[in-house]
Amino acid sequence: MTGVGLIGAGAVVQTIHLPTLARLSEEFTIRTVMDTDPATAQAVAARVGAQASTDLEDVLNDESIEVVAICSPPEFHAEQTVAALRAGKRAVLCEKPLATSHDELRDIAEALAETGGLLVVGAMHVFDPAWTEIRPRLGELVRSARTVRSSIVLPFNDRYESRASHLLPRQPMSMPDASDPAVRQAFLNAAVLGLAVHDLPLVHELIGRPGTDAEIVSAEFLEPFGYVIGIRAGQTLVEVSGLMQPHWKPLWELEAVSAEEVLHVEFTPSFVPAGSATATITGAQGAFSVGNRPTNGYEAEWRRLAQALQGQTDAVPSSADVLADAEFVVHVADRATALLGEQVPA
């Protein structure tokens, strides 16, 4: 059984990783839960019979921990990923986003090259069983898509979190004034790195992985929390939009249209184990659908990490693809944020 150390013990760990790892108890066991808040670390660790710590070094120095899951706030992801790799861990599962800057990604690339460690980014839709099944059938949709559309319309997270686990009390968040242009830029950046990031690796694959050559042509912030970003990659037009608001119905879609085929994917919401997406390719020959599987991307990412640790390295995306997708995410976040800033009257 593979020992796991969790870095950060907030809502994502409580609602996603703990229940998921509980279903995979023959593969993984949680050894240590580390959080900078000692009460949180102890409470979460007690739920799974693990050790609690407030010190990252306790996880890095524990040889019984082979896999480190980094679930801390995004600004710490890169630094902690590098530290875990350099500590000799076999694998790092880093929650999205992998990094917030190109410099951070260079550091991670160096650490990967030097250590040969395994890196998985917890972008759940990359691992969604429906996406995994439909990928080999994408054919001409990859690189020849004329338009790609990622649309996420979701209720706020608390609607799902409370149905996934008993959450520990959190500090109430104060909402900054969204009429402040700087706040809107910060929100847009956070929305890309926190929400759009779920599907940007899929979008990136569909448009042929142009990386930073993709041109960000428009960007706007939507209230109360959302974004619309236009991207042009050669002759392919991409619309990436997201909106969180207090309604009940999740509408989470990815669509790619080529001359002769349409890919349409409908994803289930985050946090709750609501099964996989459904993915359909429609063309002249009719429609082909996959999905409606009982597991979602969260469980699949851990299962495939287990397979990779057993030697099946192609069970997870290559480091090159992981880094390229993360570069694309940072590029979209940076350029969209800058573009929004340019639209602000002086």
Partner: peptide, 23 residues
């Protein structure tokens, strides 16, 4: 607004409008 020409499906439009409480 997004427009694509394709033979994959029959022509159609989808509009989605958002208010603070409705879609």
């Amino acid at each position: 607004a997004l427009v694509t020409r394709t033979s994959a499906v029959t022509p159609h439009h989808v509009l989605r409008a958002y208010s603070p409480e409705h879609v």
